[in-house]
């Protein structure tokens, strides 16, 4: 059976594409899926750092495309999950070193032996983005509950809808700060979904823990870990209810619930 190619993109930079790709890859691998993650952000590679694999890189995506190595040789096996591999980006070249057709060729070859091929897209709507979405069977758009991130996500969704071969697009709302939403100072998940009117596949709460785990190149822990694992399961077709984001509500919140105040 052939695997699925899923591109993770966002338009705006810094919303958590790479963190999401790394954690989804690790979650899927922990659920016994065969996964390969491709870093399509040529010239600004990060995915290897977040997966803790920087020191194991020998060849990269550009080497594969330019025929300096076999695809297998560029696949860096993950230290904890044998069924997870990374194809790193080149740090010394730029996005024009590969073409959409190259990405399709690579992804098609990987599809056969893997359940999931995850592609981490660079920010922006230019060449790098086009490379990253060219082979996609599905796209996950990552956004933050901020006006500018949502605006860029909207632009990306518009571009994806206008593709010759439109693919399913689903939304991940990353870095939601519950306290701020409750106070009405941040867009809520409902606001974002209603604005973008596409299907939601996951909500990841903002948590300092993510910065620590990303820096160390290990999988997230705590609530973000749960959120990514839920998304991984939804990708695998399981019906997973959305996390009750209020469960850690403040004392007041709990009192309000106790006494049945709406």
């Amino acid at each position: 059976m052939s695997g699925r190619v899923i591109t993770i993109t966002s338009g705006k930079g810094g919303v958590g594409k790479t963190t999401t790709t790394a954690n989804l890859a690790m979650s899927l691998a922990s659920l016994e899926q065969r996964v390969v993650a491709i870093d399509a952000d040529i010239g600004l590679r990060n995915l290897d750092l977040m997966m803790g694999l920087e020191n194991r890189i020998v060849y990269d995506l550009v080497d594969v495309v330019e025929g300096r190595c076999k695809l297998k040789q560029a696949m860096v096996k993950h230290k904890d999950y044998p069924a997870l591999a990374l194809i790193p980006a080149s740090q010394v070249r730029d996005k024009t070193a590969i073409s959409p057709q190259d990405m399709i060729t690579v992804a098609n070859e990987l599809k056969h032996a893997h359940d999931f091929v995850l592609i981490d897209s660079p920010a922006g709507i230019e060449w790098g983005f086009k490379n990253a979405v060219a082979p996609a069977d599905e796209v996950l758009v990552v956004t933050n509950p901020e006006v500018s991130a949502v605006r860029d996500a909207d632009r990306i969704i518009g571009l994806l809808e206008a593709e010759e071969r439109p693919v399913p697009v689903r939304l991940i709302v990353n870095r939601i700060k519950l306290g701020m939403v409750r106070r009405g100072d941040m867009l809520s998940v409902e606001d974002v979904v209603s604005l973008l009117s596409i299907k939601l596949i996951g909500v990841v709460p903002d948590d300092e823990i993510i910065i620590k785990s990303s820096n160390e190149g290990v999988a997230a822990t705590g609530r973000p870990k749960q959120a990514f694992e839920d998304i991984a399961r939804r990708l695998m077709g399981e019906k997973v209810p959305f996390m009750n984001l209020d469960s850690n509500g403040g004392v007041l919140e709990r009192f309000r619930k106790l006494f049945g105040g709406g």
Binding site: R151, D152, D154, I157, G158, L159, E161, S197
Partner: peptide
């Protein structure tokens, strides 16, 4: 008959 998104 569709939504106009940012940039369109």
């Amino acid at each position: 008959r569709r939504t106009l998104r940012s940039g369109q």
